[in-house]
Amino acid sequence: MTCLTPDRLYRYLDGDLRPEEAADVEAHRTACVRCRERIEESRALAQAASSLPDLELPAGFAESVMNRIVRAEAPHRSWLAILGIGLGALGVSLGTLILASGQSAAGLLLGFGRGSLHTLQGLVVLFLKFFKVLLLAVKILPELAGTGLRGLSRVSGSFPVEILAGTVLVTIALASGLLFAFRRSLFVQDDIGEDP
């Protein structure tokens, strides 16, 4: 048998040769000093590589990864909380508005609808005029929405949920106040209309 090729040598060391091939290598190894040395050398190299010390990880590595995961999820969760608080506050505001007006909810909505009709017509015309612009905007909308959401996430991630929720509550209170004022002007118009 001729001396071992590297391919045959490594396959022998991996136990990848057929039994008769392995027996040939064993026989040759006994007879050939050079190949015997090469086998031992390859074993030594593999042993040295597999016993290389671990690279040192800093203590608390797993915790730091988990903290990043928690931080990445936090903005999403805080927005859900804020959305819930906002919807709740809106419901309370509308309830208060109905009670304070002394009218039924249906009457209040009817008055609001009447006053809004002219505004709505104007908005429809405006929307039609800008329809082409909107079509173009649709093409870049996903990117803009992504940027906007990322911005909102950063903002929500930078402030505690309590501050954000407070901001939403104040905004809704202001909006409710404006709505209340709008309702009053509607009722004044209604009063004028009903007077003889």
Partner: peptide, 28 residues
Amino acid sequence: CLQVPDHAPSVGRSYELTELRRKVDRAL
């Protein structure tokens, strides 16, 4: 390509394991 082994001195015999590890790490 994989060459037939030559007559170079044996790496395994020339170095102790610790030294061999260091050299393998560097060659790697």
